[in-house]
Write a protein that binds this DNA or RNA. Structure first.
Length: 615
DNA sequence: CTAGGGTTAG
């Protein structure tokens, strides 16, 4: 048996002896055939390659009589032809081909070949190993630099970050010039994978390695910092770049503007706008999108429309993003008429509709309780060939829940899961809060527990909802326990969570604990807001401490918070009940003046105050 | 090469 196998083996293996033709001769023959007739002869007569081995492949590919593109054809032929499996190019062949392609400045093709290397477990190896396979001699001077640069990029594109860093370090060690543009590709790849920390580390490395730093990479870092919530640090980085003589551009300003808008930081927003004015950087459609969002979020719909008009007056063409933002804010403020006008408008302008736009519209009609309209929009978007995604399903579920139509919401959830979208934290939370609203607390909790049982971790919102349910049940013990549990599990409470608990304790009359939590949230770097104060005011008021409530009210105004209808209603009701009708009416006037609408109950309690007035 | 849009909790 053994001998037979050996015989077969030797029959296939070309013997290298003086009487048979040498590897060199075979390679020259192959190269000649390739040169004269291309790849065709090898396709029709595979036996032409019967003597092929890796050494010959290498010789063919490095034959300078054969132009690089012919080498590439030959290489691809060997790679792709299943019958030539045993002749697949080895690592050396790849490197040789890369060298040849470089001669012809075929960089894109070089990248492809690098891609074959890095995506093949059998070929991947260290940079030093790869470099050792480059034949010394007739290479162009900058070849190794380009070789490393492209490899670095290909690693970055394939998210092989450690390998990319290996190349970077090699280049630095060897004194090769590192191209900023490649570093940018690496930074962006890292950012897309949410490896923000690694981004910063790498940026430091770039600086240390004396890579030329321009506004591009700095803007990327500024964005990374903003997205991480370090807007201050981002701002400092911009100042640093100015000191070093690098001018911020529209991208830099928009990035920071976005950071401040998202943080609802009016000082920051205004500062960016004045810097843009100083540097005469004109707004583009992105700037206008950010500004409409800013005003929308501040409840200034007039300003939103003003920005939208100004944009068009200045000849900045509207796109689908800015339309979505303006439509979305009109939906949120209940102006569906305007939203539909804009929706028609953008269709007329030939802007291609997408699921974001439909998402905003569907949410808008849901918010005004028009579920039939929502279903129509849903059909409409499907007619346009847009598939219903998870966000749309969640939006629709939310619409039904807000109407108390839990069963309908659950039907949507079932359809969603049938379409292959597993219900996530959003969906579960929507159902739970819907059930909570109709006081079906046990079922509400059950859904969130089910979510856990299905292996999904509760997030901050889910925990907040759960805590809210417990508070509404009056079970503060459980609420407290959940609050501790979430912290233990590493889920960070946010100001919503604190407000929920503060509201729970205030309602129960445990005002001390409520104040303690207010201090705690301040310690944690969160600012108490209108909801915090309103809950505390309500707590004080209900338990007869009306003066304490007024102190809180003044404190919140001093801190610049605008009281809402609930705040006013609470206080006015309290004052009325105690017969302090003058004060009650003063607040009522104030409330009307700030554009808030009182409900019927409030009016009757005001009237009541006149009867109990202590004059 | 770098920036922007739709859904959830009080």
């Amino acid at each position: 048996m053994i001998t037979q196998t050996l015989v077969q083996y030797f029959a296939k293996t070309p013997v290298r002896n003086p009487t048979s033709i040498s590897y060199k001769d075979i390679s020259i023959q192959i190269a000649k055939t390739l040169f004269n007739s291309g790849i065709e002869p090898f396709k029709t007569t595979p036996s032409l390659l019967s003597n092929l081995n890796s050494h010959i492949t290498h010789l063919v590919l490095s034959d300078t009589n054969l132009p690089p593109h012919a080498c590439l054809h030959f290489f691809n032929f060997l790679r792709q032809n299943p019958s030539l499996y045993s002749h697949r190019p080895d690592l050396q062949a790849h490197v040789t081909l890369i060298c040849r392609l470089h001669e012809a400045q075929k960089f894109a093709e070089m990248k492809k070949v690098f891609n074959y290397i890095v995506t093949d477990a059998n070929l991947r190896c260290s940079i030093v190993n790869l470099i050792s396979l480059i034949e010394s001699g007739n290479q162009q001077p900058k070849f190794v630099e380009k070789f490393c640069d492209l490899l670095f990029r290909v690693y970055a594109d394939n998210r092989l970050f450690e390998d990319a860093l290996g190349v970077f370090d090699y280049m630095e060690r060897s004194g090769l010039k590192i191209d900023e543009r490649s570093c940018i590709a690496f930074l962006l790849a890292l950012k897309r994978c949410d490896h923000i920390e690694m981004c910063f580390k790498f940026f430091r490395k770039m600086v240390d390695a004396n890579v030329e730093i321009t506004v591009y990479s700095i803007s990327i870092m500024i964005d990374g910092l903003c997205k991480r919530g370090d807007v201050e640090m981002a701002r400092d980085l911009m100042d640093e770049m100015v000191v070093k003589g690098i001018k911020p551009n529209l991208y830099t300003y928009n990035t920071l503007l976005n950071g401040f808008v998202k943080r609802k930081d009016a000082v920051g927003v205004n500062e960016m706008l004045s810097l843009m004015q100083r540097d005469q950087v004109a707004y583009n459609v992105v700037t206008y999108t950010l500004l409409t969002d800013w005003y929308g979020n501040s409840g200034k719909m007039v300003e939103v429309e003003k920005m939208f008009d100004e944009m068009r007056e200045r000849g900045v063409e509207a796109d689908v993003h800015v339309y979505t933002t303006v439509i979305s804010w009109n939906c949120k403020s209940g102006n569906m008429r305007r939203a539909f006008t804009l929706f028609d408008d953008l269709t007329e302008r030939g802007i291609v509709l997408n699921s974001h736009i439909y998402g905003a519209m569907i949410d808008g009609v849901c918010k005004v309780g028009q579920l039939e309209a929502a279903e129509m929009l849903l059909k409409d978007m499907q007619r346009q060939g847009l598939s219903v995604n998870e966000v749309i399903f969640n939006t629709l579920m939310n619409g039904y829940c807000k109407k108390g139509m839990i069963d309908e919401a659950l039907k949507v959830m079932a359809i969603m899961e049938k379409k292959g979208f597993e219900a996530g934290p959003f969906a579960y939370n929507t159902i739970a809060s819907g059930l909570c609203k109709v006081k079906r607390y046990n079922e509400a909790k059950k859904w969130l527990f089910t979510m856990m049982e299905r292996g999904l971790a509760l997030n901050t919102v889910n925990f907040s909802t759960l805590i809210d349910i417990c508070c509404k049940e009056g079970n503060l013990e459980e609420a407290k326990w959940l609050f501790e549990d979430m912290k233990m599990k590493g889920v960070k409470p946010n100001s919503f969570t604190y407000n929920t608990l503060i509201h729970g304790y205030s309602k129960k009359g445990n005002i001390k604990q409520a104040y303690r939590l207010k201090c705690k949230m301040e310690e944690m770097g969160m600012t108490p807001d209108v909801y915090t104060y309103t809950s505390l005011i309500h707590g004080e008021r209900v338990f007869g401490k009306l003066d304490e409530a007024m102190i809180l009210f003044n404190e919140m105004i001093e801190k610049g918070f605008i009281p809402n209808a609930v705040t006013y209603t609470t206080l006015i009701t309290g004052l009325s009940k105690e017969g302090r009708s003058d004060e009650a009416f003063r607040l009522y006037d104030e409330m009307i003046a700030s554009g808030l609408t009182p409900d019927d109950k409030l009016c009757s309690s005001l009237v009541g105050s006149l009867h109990t007035a202590k004059s």
